[in-house]
Amino acid sequence: MQVLIDNFGLILDGFVKTLWLLLFAGLIALVLGTLLVALRVSPVAVMRAVGTSYINVVRNTPLLLIVYLFGALFPVLGYTASISSYIDYSFITATIALGMYAAAFVCEALRAGINSIPVGQAEAARSLGMTFGQSMSTVILPQAFRAAIPPLASTYIALAKNTSVALAIGVTEAAFAMKKLNNEYATGRSWIFFGFAVGYILIVWAIAAFAHGLERQAGKAR
């Protein structure tokens, strides 16, 4: 217990960085995932093929390998920029890798949402004379989004937990702090574990509660 109290600042710094990773990678995943789902459900065969290939490649590769691949690729290509000493090169690499990995799952969540809508909904909208844009924005997408919230929540919870992999290329987030404490202290390992576990569980609960709230909101609009 004393270990946690003595190093509270270090632990807090770690979790703050974890949250930054989650935020930036989450935004990348949302934007890229939306683009990918547009490709995946497109009526044009080439676009569909590209979307499907991305999903099959990224979803089946271990995240750690993706992180290492980008870690090796960017210096070779000469991209080693950092924005500040806090948002440094390894942070950017990890964010991009996490975002690209999560994007595949965001895409699948959104696609599951679209697939959950019966064709009759679209046919009814068309037969009422709605244009493509109208039927999308007032009939299809609101329902699709509602159905996509639970799998999206799972994806973001997984992303929050996966930010810990960033320590592999030296990002000083929470799991990195845990490893550091384990190296410095010979006792109190169970306390260290529970302390960090509680931190992650709080993040997971926050995401689950947010998704629950969104779902209630979306349900009200029905």
């Binding site: 810990s164 799991a175 169970s190 260290i192 960090f196 576990a197």
Partner: peptide
């Protein structure tokens, strides 16, 4: 519920060091 919510890496480190 506990072990589903904890990142796997934390489990790896805990068991490894202990």
């Amino acid at each position: 519920e506990f072990f589903r919510a904890v990142p796997l890496l934390l489990l790896f480190f805990y068991i490894f060091y202990a």
